[in-house]
């Protein structure tokens, strides 16, 4: 079982809860959601509790995260976009900490489940759509008609824009989910090679060096991917929010 690369994605019920035939059990996934939220909140609250004018190392880490997201949001959605800052910052920290938590051996990676990333993506898209409609009304649909397009092309371009808008939650969620899933499977497969090869005697142990090196390299890569995917998710969120604020391209 230890070498099964899919095993790590299994949901186990820790406290079975069922309401009206629906399963709302507290699972290992729920546990790691709670841990992610607790760790991220504790870090951000504890490091900033000093409110130091001259930051300590950890406080400057929290400040860096803040400024990183703030710059991202400001550069793609303008200063108006700062009204969404708590949402964008929460998304970034949640996804980042969840991804990084997944790098611990035996930890569950909540972002490796499509439903989790899809709910987060839908949160973004619904925010964009609802806010865009509330703020701009019908003008929000100008999003689908890029300015500067000749009138004759609008019937062709508009459906493409609609499709691209509708595929956003899919691409946003699948990108994060697939990256985390594939990374963890690859890592597990190579680590499994090390175990199965070294069980084959002296030659096997020698042969296991290659997948072992690969596992180390992949671990480094996965840390990069964990950060990068949180970044990409947040950047795209910022760009979509920009559409809600300024629907005319």
């Amino acid at each position: 079982m230890a070498n099964d690369p899919i095993h790590q994605f299994h949901i186990q019920k820790l406290f079975p809860i069922e309401v009206g035939g629906m399963d709302f059990s507290f699972t290992n996934s729920s546990l790691f959601m709670v841990l992610t939220v607790a760790a991220a909140s504790a870090f951000l609250i504890l490091t900033t509790s000093g409110r130091g004018l001259v930051p300590t190392r950890l406080q400057s880490l929290s400040e860096m995260a803040y400024e990183f997201v703030a710059n991202m949001l400001r550069s793609s959605a303008g200063s108006e976009g700062m009204r969404f800052f708590p949402l964008v910052f929460s998304l970034f920290m949640f996804v980042l900490v969840a991804n990084l938590f997944g790098m611990f051996p035996y930890f569950f990676t909540i972002t490796s489940h499509i439903i989790v990333t899809f709910v987060l993506a839908m949160l973004v898209i619904l925010t964009v759509t609802i806010y865009g409609l509330m703020r701009h009304g019908v003008k929000f649909f100008g999003l689908f008609v890029p300015s500067g397009v000749p009138g004759a092309l609008i019937p062709i371009v508009a459906p493409i824009e609609v499709i691209s808008f509708l595929s956003r939650p899919v691409s946003l969620s699948v990108r994060l989910f697939a990256n985390m899933l594939a990374g963890h499977i690859t890592l597990k497969v190579f680590a499994g090679f090390v175990v199965s090869l070294s069980a084959m005697g002296a030659v096997g142990i020698f042969g296991a060096i290659l997948p072992l090196g690969m596992t180390v390299a992949l671990t480094a890569l996965e840390f990069l991917v964990a950060f990068l995917q949180a970044y990409v998710f947040t950047v795209l969120t910022c760009m979509y929010l920009n559409d809600a604020l300024h629907p005319s391209h």
């Binding site: 709302f24 803040y66 949402l87 910052f89 439903i115 709910v119």
Partner: peptide
């Protein structure tokens, strides 16, 4: 597993968002 994951994600992310919005940010 979807129903349970959605519920717990909404709860945990909701709490997280509340903490970020009212304390951290």
């Amino acid at each position: 597993t979807f129903s349970s994951q959605i519920l717990w994600l909404v709860i945990t992310f909701g709490v997280f968002y509340w903490i970020m919005k009212n304390v951290v940010v």
